[in-house]
Computed example of a mutant assay.
Amino acid sequence: MTGKLFIRWPTTQLLPVLPEPSVLALDNAPYHTQLTDVCRCPTMATKKANLITWLERHGIPVPDGPTQPELLVRCQQNQPKLQYTEDNIIGEWGHEVVCLPPAHPELNATEQVWACMKHHVCSSLHRFPWADLQARLEAAKL
């Protein structure tokens, strides 16, 4: 799964039919937390010239003769507030995003449904042929 693939489903299927305003709960999967280009801060791997460009683009004065580590510290001190692409897109549709805390699957309704489904399939399955598994999955949908 990628951020682009993830956002395609809500924008084409979910958001057009979701009553406004709604709250969408997202877990901390990497494709749910894609930083926007505006708030992306340079890293230690960023070249000195690119650090200077980033600072200038954000209206931050660049001192004379700075070292790369000094520039990086200045960038980090002036990093814009974090924004996530998915939050912005969902917000444009008039909805709000709530992020679930990391490592708490018990708060995620989807995880609870999958746990029930897996328990049902495993507890009633004596053999593992594909046809039997499909039949058990269909029976669990009820």
Rank of each mutant, 00 (worst) to 15 (best):
residue 3 G to M: 08
residue 5 L to C: 13
residue 8 R to I: 00
residue 9 W to D: 05
residue 10 P to S: 03
residue 10 P to A: 06
residue 18 L to H: 03
residue 20 E to A: 11
residue 22 S to V: 02
residue 23 V to F: 05
residue 35 L to C: 14
residue 35 L to F: 05
residue 40 R to T: 07
residue 41 C to L: 05
residue 41 C to Q: 05
residue 43 T to N: 08
residue 47 K to Y: 05
residue 47 K to N: 08
residue 48 K to P: 04
residue 52 I to L: 08
residue 54 W to E: 02
residue 56 E to T: 13
residue 57 R to E: 14
residue 59 G to M: 14
residue 61 P to Y: 08
residue 63 P to R: 09
residue 64 D to T: 11
residue 65 G to R: 15
residue 68 Q to I: 03
residue 69 P to R: 10
residue 70 E to D: 15
residue 71 L to P: 04
residue 73 V to Q: 10
residue 74 R to P: 00
residue 75 C to E: 00
residue 78 N to E: 09
residue 79 Q to P: 03
residue 81 K to H: 12
residue 81 K to A: 14
residue 82 L to V: 10
residue 82 L to P: 06
residue 83 Q to T: 01
residue 83 Q to A: 02
residue 87 D to Y: 01
residue 88 N to M: 13
residue 89 I to A: 07
residue 90 I to K: 05
residue 93 W to N: 03
residue 93 W to R: 12
residue 95 H to A: 08
residue 97 V to M: 11
residue 99 C to F: 13
residue 101 P to L: 04
residue 101 P to C: 08
residue 102 P to Q: 09
residue 102 P to S: 12
residue 103 A to H: 15
residue 104 H to S: 12
residue 104 H to Q: 15
residue 105 P to K: 12
residue 106 E to T: 05
residue 108 N to L: 06
residue 108 N to Y: 01
residue 109 A to T: 11
residue 110 T to Y: 07
residue 111 E to V: 07
residue 111 E to L: 13
residue 117 M to G: 00
residue 117 M to A: 08
residue 118 K to D: 09
residue 121 V to Y: 11
residue 123 S to K: 13
residue 129 P to W: 07
residue 130 W to T: 14
residue 132 D to I: 07
residue 133 L to T: 06
residue 133 L to P: 02
residue 134 Q to C: 13
residue 137 L to G: 12
residue 138 E to C: 02
residue 138 E to H: 11
residue 140 A to M: 09
residue 141 K to C: 09
residue 142 L to C: 07
